[in-house]
Design a protein around this nucleic acid. Structure first.
Length: 815
RNA sequence: GCCAGUGUGGUGAAAUUGGUAGACACGCCGGAUUCAAAAUCCGGUUCCUUCACGGGAGUGUCGGUUCGAGUCCGACCACUGGUACCA
């Protein structure tokens, strides 16, 4: 028997065993409950980092735990293999993205193996493989046929010097990250998917997701941003309508100007004979597309000279161009009520536009329009016929009138915008469309799929190579047979990550996107990933699932039943990054301490939802614990098999250790399943081990030790599976802990005769008393009052009240 | 800017339903072992005060509710994530 804990040989042995027995391959099995456990697949950036280790360890712990509960557990792994970093690496190191990606996958797969994750590798997929993205292309064509995919003009960040589109992260301080020249906005044709068509469902189905963190549901709810309001028309001089959307028609009488986006047709028209305005409009094209930049930039505007007629008063009000009005939201125009909207108030103050009060506070709230807008709902004033109405009444009265007069329509609006899926990049799945001068956008026929992305490419400069490859884009129109060009844009990588979870169920099916096995495993029972994906990825995947449902591919409404969002891994309080030089390489830690130590520390150092502060000495502590545990097991086994447990013969001390064992099983079970706080589960197990060290060597001590050690090994197995694989063999003689079940609490071991409770005087602890478990309130109270220190604090005061909380405390209120 | 979250000893954290603040670890201090060191084992460790028993203060800040608040409410401060082309 191995006297010393030797992680290298022990982990190798366990991994060989799992490989030889194909331990983690799984097939549908109607005799057991299914459990689909999934961690968000990684981008193959080169090496695993600590964030990966944490993410995948959490999922692996859950998968292994669920398996011990007797379920058929699917835990697959794959690669989110398309994306920008491969192109950057290609430019920097002159290596084609396909090769770079494939090499990274090879290396990272080996790292996964060394960490001992229980993956069914038979189902591995990579999104850059044509067998994967072919089905995405096929599905996109279904969406196109249903009118759910469409083309429209939309803006991008454009670098004139590099002649390329820039991602938001490639724009630094308004300039291109490579050549440092200012970016400009440019409108180009792009493909969109109508997520707005599903906005209502995406919102209401959030209520089904009761096993998602509330904060993620809240963020998605706010992102979708449903609001009820009214579209209403102001009339321009040429009698055309200038339409705006507002959720506050009750403030309509307080509109003192209109604000329109610089790209609005009215602005463009007015600028054509106004050079100053034209210059202003032009100057606004240099702002980066990102919402954060839009919202924090200086709010500037200019009078267009155009006026519009107010739909109720008939008054003429000025129309201003304002840089904070977005052409892509609503109609690109807003009505401005500076008295009751803070942004309008600031703009009006800056440009000395009139501010009118039309809402008065209901209670005595502050309302001083010289200082700030009054944005709460209230009672209408200065509003003619509508004076005295509250928000709801005014909303209805004004909306009714506008609808009656044909100047407005009640409408439900969403903040959510349609999903732009076009990328002017090389390393992505080609959009399966052929552009024909005669027939327009024509889908590639199904039998010609996949449209394969050429991988033998040279990166010259920064643009996409396929845009310069006639052999790729020159083709004929499937409809008319004439000359045509292939779409050279590729899909947003969020498209691939929106359905991979379903494809794992049937990775190798070359006849269909999904099959019945996908329906067997879906939905994912437990999804694990970073909180940074709370909105985009998780919303797109939910949307895609509904699209697939409506195509008849899956039966369920939602893809992920339960969600765990893990926090980041920090070092010295900051996110690990190469530029900060504070990275920790998991590989060298595995080499030094073994995978179990790395896994144990990752799970012990913080609860999964919180950020985790990396600590080298903490890792040593985790390793120390494993060595101590190993010694405990080895020493126990060295003394031969333990005698049978005889509960009636136990001493009080032995009974206490046994109670601790079963209390720990209860706590760890709850921590693993309901709470998902693995750190406290591990702490409880450590506590139990500390107590076990105090057991003697007589027969019943050894019997209790045997029972406890088996429980400890079973409970730690999901976290540190290698060492537990071996310790289980030593303790039981059985070869495979994977076939063992989760330990069961013996309720009879939990009983106790006495309890310690605290005695407080005015909320401060003054004594501790030990009382029988079944003591009644009066007995507890009188015992509490007898305590010397309690008496001291009751001298000279009168007891007003006594609160007895059974099993916890007594609080004597006195003054 | 907006949306969401976090803030507790020297450090990572625990306190699950409003009921003993600091479990479990790290670090540090003291001791055992050792020729010596490493490793290991034992003990101590929120701060202030006290020979000691004990006492006082304490969970980002300020205020509130309650017999009782880390936990609930209000305001504020700092940091983190997202903000639609990073994934």
């Amino acid at each position: 028997m191995e006297q010393h804990y030797n992680p290298q040989s022990l982990e190798q042995g366990a991994q060989k065993y799992w490989l030889a027995n194909n331990s983690f391959a799984v097939q549908p099995d109607d005799s057991r409950e299914k459990f689909y456990c999934l961690a968000m697949f990684p981008y193959p950036s080169g090496q695993l980092h600590m964030g990966h280790v944490r993410n995948y360890t959490i999922a692996d712990v859950i998968a292994r735990y669920q398996r011990m509960l007797g379920k058929a557990v699917l835990q697959p792994m794959g690669w989110d293999a398309f994306g920008l970093p491969a192109e950057n690496a290609a430019i920097k190191h002159n290596v084609p993205p396909a090769q770079w990606t494939a090499e990274n996958i090879e290396y990272m797969r080996e790292q996964f193996r060394l960490l001992g994750f229980a993956y069914d590798w038979d189902r591995e997929l990579a999104t850059c493989h044509p067998q994967y993205y072919r089905w995405e292309q096929w599905f996109f064509i279904r969406l196109f046929e249903k009118g759910l995919a469409y083309k429209k003009k939309a803006e991008v960040n454009w670098c004139e010097t590099d002649q390329t589109v820039l991602a938001n992260e490639q724009v630094v301080d308004g300039c291109c990250w490579r050549c440092d020249n200012p970016v400009e906005r440019r409108e180009i044709d792009q493909w969109f998917i109508r997520i707005t068509e599903y906005a209502d469902q995406l919102l209401s189905d959030l209520d089904q997701l009761d096993q998602w963190p509330e904060r993620v549901r809240t963020m998605q709810r706010n992102w979708i941003g449903r609001s009820e309001g009214i579209d209403l028309d102001f009339t321009l001089a040429d009698s055309s309508a200038l339409s705006v959307y507002t959720t506050r028609p009750d403030t309509l009488m307080g509109v003192t100007y209109l604000a329109i986006a610089p790209q609005h047709r009215v602005a463009k028209a007015a600028a054509s004979n106004n050079p100053a305005l034209a210059a202003f409009v032009e100057s606004q094209t240099s702002i980066k597309l990102a919402e954060a930049d839009m919202a924090t930039m200086d709010k500037v505007g200019m009078d267009t000279g155009v006026t519009a007629t107010h739909p109720l008063t008939g008054k003429e009000i000025p129309v201003w161009v304002a840089n904070f009005v977005l052409m892509s939201y609503g109609s690109g125009a807003v009505m401005s009520v500076p008295g009751h909207d803070q942004r309008d108030w600031e703009f009006a103050t800056k440009y000395q536009l009139p501010i009118a009060q039309v809402i008065a506070p209901v209670e005595n709230e502050d309302c001083n329009l010289d200082q700030a807008a009054f944005t709460d709902k209230g009672i209408l004033v200065n509003s003619g016929d509508y004076n005295g109405l509250g928000f709801e009444q005014a909303f209805d009265a004004i909306s009714d009138r506008l609808e009656r007069e044909g100047r407005g329509r009640r409408s439900i609006n969403f903040r959510l915008r349609d999903w732009g899926v076009s990328r002017q990049r090389y390393w992505g799945a080609p959009i399966p469309i052929i552009n024909c001068d005669t027939c327009g956008a024509v889908p590639v026929p199904d039998q010609e799929l996949p449209v394969v992305l050429p991988t033998d490419v040279k990166f010259e400069g920064v643009g996409s190579p396929i845009k310069k490859m006639p052999e790729f884009y020159q083709t004929t129109c499937p409809k008319c047979g004439g000359e045509a060009t292939r779409e050279t844009d590729t899909f947003d990588t969020f498209v691939e990550s929106s359905w991979y979870y379903a494809r794992y169920a049937c990775t190798r099916n070359s006849n269909a996107m999904l099959d019945q096995e996908a329906n067997y495993w879906a939905p994912v029972d437990q999804y694990v990933g970073g909180i940074e994906h709370a909105i985009l990825h998780l919303l797109y995947a939910r949307f895609f699932h509904k699209l697939m449902r409506d195509e008849g591919l899956v039966d369920s409404d939602e893809p992920f039943k339960r969600l765990l969002t893990q926090g980041m891994v920090l070092k010295d309080g900051a996110k690990m990054s190469k530029s900060k030089g504070n990275t920790v390489d998991p590989q060298s830690l595995i080499n030094t301490y073994g995978a179990d130590t790395v896994r144990l520390f990752s799970m012990f150092a913080a609860p999964p939802e919180q950020s985790l502060e990396w600590s080298d000495s903490g890792v040593e502590g985790a390793n120390r614990f494993l060595r101590r545990l190993w010694k405990l097991v080895v020493n126990h086994v060295a003394h031969g098999s333990a005698p049978a447990l005889s509960v009636p013969d136990l001493s009080n001390n032995q009974r206490a250790v046994r109670r601790k064992t079963h209390e720990t099983i209860a706590k760890v079970s709850d921590d693993f399943s309901r709470r998902q706080t693995f750190n406290t589960a591990i702490a409880a197990t450590m506590e139990l081990c500390n107590d076990l060290g105090k057991l003697g060597t007589d027969a019943q001590d050894r019997a209790i030790m045997a029972e406890a050690l088996r429980a400890v090994v079973l409970m730690l197995n999901p976290v540190v599976p290698h060492i537990c694989h071996r310790m289980w063999q030593l303790l039981t003689g059985e070869s495979d802990i994977l076939t063992a079940s989760w330990p069961i609490v013996d309720e009879s071991a939990l009983t106790r005769d006495t309890l310690e409770i605290v005695v407080q005087v005015n909320g401060k602890v003054r004594a501790r008393i030990t009382v029988p478990t079944d003591a009644d309130k009066d007995a507890i109270q009188s015992l509490a009052l007898e305590q010397e220190n309690v008496k001291r604090f009751l001298e000279g005061v009168t007891v007003r009240k006594t609160i007895v909380v059974p099993g916890k405390l007594v609080n004597i209120v006195a003054n």
